[in-house]
Design a protein around this nucleic acid. Structure first.
Lengths: 230, 230
DNA sequence: TGCAGCAATCTGGTCTAACCAGAATTTGTT
DNA sequence: AACAAATTCTGGTTAGACCAGATTGCTGCA
């Protein structure tokens, strides 16, 4: 656990402790000893966690964990750190991601540059190769979708969507173990690409809607229902 | 500058220094002396800034500022800290905010609870009072819009949208100095509310589209054009 | 003059030790 | 049992030190 990023470890530890202790987390000194680092190290991690509103540091009292945390920053961090989210958070994230991707498809159809098309085509080609080799296209699926967002020419948009992708990485890997799913997904990607090239916003976003329906339902189907609607 | 949050100050200082120095920022020790705090304090702030990808700390070399920063976390922080954004960032933020609000209106029409309606009505009533008193409704405008997002029952959605609001606070204040704009905005809010109560998704989002057109164009009209489109 | 090589300096990274003052808890007394 | 006092604990903050690689500058050789 040396030399690198104790932040995820501390975050996970804090969440566990808080769950078992009613929101209260161990003190800085305890954490420092537990992880065999100095208090300074711990405080740096806590500062970050506080900036994401994962915890609250109350002077001379203690560290309190925001259990009902649904901030975007925190979610993005948890996703990156591989810390599991509550099923409600996943539902919410899936819904928000859907919204973004559909709109991105619509905008990309209008704004995509030649380079964007080239990059997308490159992803499609590599996908074909992997499928031919009998391998999963999970990483390339992600690349394809993010490349579409990038084609909106809105870097903020891209930044937000990127955060959502870390969230689904592991599950995506499982999803793409099935060769049929690989083929189906790839086919849909190609259709989306064609619509994009035709600069048909409506068609592109429509195709994206149905494409996401398949992938996303796999995401949530294992969770206890807790979605707001849709 | 004591007792509280040196983070914004350090962030601003870092940005300035970097601009004048080609990306390189002063050392931790210099910053500590400059702000009359300990190195530990500075390091906490830097850790946060790094977690937002505003800076990069290269071991034994120095602190480098990410000038072409377009991360969501950073944007939200800058907005909160009152640090001015580049016009391109503002354009992007306005576009993304628009997307969110329109979709939020659509979803809220389906999912809003009785309490949501009550809260919205409360905002409308207070708006009326303020207008009658000849005061600006800038804060209430914000409340109204966020309340709609809240009515989607998606807390992650709300978290993202909240970040966008800090961004427009000051400009909104200026905008609502004009009594006509107050009245017009309030009227449109009432129409949106009515559509919401009727649970008419299409109408609600359509009204939101035209409502935002007015407000948002004010946002960007002073900037040099740099938008991706639309 | 030009450049290679070495030495001093600077930098982020990390740690131990200490003090403060208020919060939280324990103890002691009535 | 209830209240008050003493003690422990906590986050907040600082000062000083050491490490080792990166950077810079100087020096002397060619």
């Amino acid at each position: 656990m040396q030399g690198q990023e104790i932040l995820p470890a501390i975050a996970a530890h804090l969440l566990d402790s808080a769950r078992a202790n009613g929101g209260k987390a161990p003190s800085e000194r305890h954490l420092a000893e537990h992880f065999s680092v100095s208090r300074g190290q711990v405080r740096e991690a806590l500062a970050i966690l506080e900036s994401m509103q994962v915890i609250e540091r109350r002077a001379k009292s203690g560290i309190y964990v925001n259990t009902d945390n649904s901030g975007f920053e925190a979610m993005a961090f948890f996703a990156r750190a591989g810390i599991p989210l509550e099923s409600r958070q996943i539902y919410e994230a899936v819904e928000v991601r859907k919204i973004h991707e559909i709109k991105a498809a619509e905008l990309a159809a209008v704004r995509a540059t030649e380079e964007d098309f080239e990059r997308l085509q490159d992803v499609l080609e590599r996908s074909e190769q992997r499928i031919a080799a009998g391998e999963g296209i999970d990483a390339l699926d992600q690349e394809f979708h993010l490349q579409i967002v990038r084609a909106t020419q809105n870097t903020l948009f891209l930044s937000i969507c990127t955060s959502f992708y870390e969230l689904g990485r592991q599950r995506l890997k499982v999803y793409f173990r099935d060769p049929d799913r690989n083929r189906k997904s790839h086919e849909e990607h190609k259709q989306i690409y064609d619509a994009l090239v035709k600069r048909d916003s409506a068609l592109t976003s429509a195709l994206m809607v149905s494409h996401l329906r398949g992938v996303m339902s796999y995401w949530t189907e294992l969770l206890e229902p807790q979605a707001p609607g849709s």
